[in-house]
Computed example of a mutant assay.
Amino acid sequence: MTRGADIIAVIILIALAIAVIVYLLHWLYRRSSKEVSFVRTGMFGEKVIISGGAFVLPIIHNITQVGMRTLSLTIKRAGDKSLITKDRMRAELVTEFFTKVPPDKKAVSTAAQTLGNRTLDPEHLREVVQGRFADALGEVAANMTLDEIQENRGQFVKEVTKIADESIGHTGLALETVSLISLDQTPIEQFNPANTFDSQGLTQLTEQIEARKKKRNDITQDTKISIENKNLETIQKELEIKKNEEFSRYKQEREIAIQKANERTETIKQRSEREREAEEAEIRSQEEIEVAKISQ
């Protein structure tokens, strides 16, 4: 009995030991996920875990979680926050930046050192990168006119992406894409005449507006004159057609009258000729009768 009890006790102890070990392994072994990596520091140095896991011992190890999800950040610049362009215009725009910590050990390590657990909180991460992205927009806009930005949106986005990506590179973040959602000129009411840049832009804008008004007025007046000239030309052509119609009618009537007169003249002439011939025939007849009488 004693030997059997000892065996059972040993089995129970082994089972408890295994349970404790499994529990400790479950508790001490930390796994990463697709959305969260971590960096373990302390004994044995730094270890970056992107896909897999590692033992984390209390007191001797410390971990920093790093979010791997893509952050979408919309930056809007309008009103007095609008961007000043190369030609001193103000541009209102809405852009969307997509950034994340790339699945690279160096990048994850850098993000853990510079950002810490803020990569897990989108709002805190926005506070870190928003100013840098806004600066990139302002820097590129300052080197392009408003028309150039509109006509070369792809180039504008490319330059912004380059500068913004460099500005956040030391944080371990990487810029995936930048989208220029909308672009428009700031209303003229937002220009501050007391501001040097705004006053220059306001002067140019006023000149452009007045030039466009003059051009529109010139086009309107030229169109009006063109229409009036066309109407006058139409009237003149109509009168010319009517005149030609009258001349043609008069000419036709005159020709008919002449033809009728010629026909009457010819008729009279023919009648006279026949009467003359008849008289001559009668005279010859009388002469012949007289000759006949004398001969008898």
Results as ranks from 00 to 15, higher is better:
3 R>C: 01
8 I>W: 07
13 L>A: 06
18 I>R: 01
20 V>D: 01
21 I>N: 04
29 Y>D: 08
29 Y>G: 12
38 F>W: 13
46 E>W: 12
46 E>D: 14
51 S>Y: 08
54 A>W: 14
58 P>Q: 01
60 I>P: 11
61 H>P: 15
64 T>P: 14
65 Q>D: 11
66 V>W: 07
68 M>D: 01
70 T>R: 06
75 I>K: 01
77 R>P: 00
78 A>V: 15
79 G>P: 01
79 G>A: 03
81 K>E: 12
83 L>A: 03
85 T>L: 03
90 R>A: 06
92 E>T: 02
96 E>I: 12
97 F>V: 00
105 K>R: 09
106 K>M: 07
108 V>C: 05
113 Q>R: 15
113 Q>L: 12
116 G>Q: 01
117 N>H: 10
119 T>C: 07
126 R>H: 06
132 R>S: 13
133 F>M: 03
136 A>V: 14
138 G>C: 02
139 E>R: 08
140 V>H: 05
141 A>L: 05
145 T>C: 10
146 L>R: 00
148 E>W: 10
153 R>F: 10
153 R>E: 04
154 G>F: 07
155 Q>P: 11
157 V>I: 15
159 E>A: 13
162 K>L: 11
165 D>L: 07
169 G>C: 02
172 G>N: 04
172 G>I: 09
174 A>P: 01
174 A>Y: 04
176 E>L: 04
179 S>H: 08
179 S>P: 00
181 I>Y: 00
181 I>L: 10
185 Q>Y: 00
188 I>P: 03
189 E>P: 02
193 P>T: 05
196 T>E: 09
196 T>V: 15
196 T>S: 08
196 T>C: 00
197 F>Q: 01
197 F>E: 11
198 D>Q: 03
201 G>T: 02
203 T>L: 12
204 Q>P: 00
208 Q>T: 06
208 Q>S: 04
208 Q>F: 13
208 Q>M: 08
213 K>A: 01
214 K>R: 15
215 K>Y: 06
218 D>H: 13
221 Q>I: 15
225 I>D: 04
226 S>H: 00
232 L>Q: 07
232 L>I: 14
234 T>H: 08
235 I>K: 14
237 K>H: 13
238 E>F: 06
241 I>M: 05
243 K>V: 12
243 K>E: 13
243 K>H: 04
244 N>Y: 09
246 E>S: 02
246 E>M: 11
252 Q>A: 10
253 E>M: 14
256 I>T: 10
257 A>P: 08
262 N>Q: 14
268 I>M: 12
270 Q>C: 02
270 Q>Y: 04
272 S>F: 05
273 E>F: 12
273 E>T: 13
280 E>N: 06
280 E>L: 15
280 E>T: 08
282 E>Q: 12
289 I>M: 11
289 I>A: 13
290 E>N: 07
291 V>H: 06
296 Q>S: 09
296 Q>W: 14
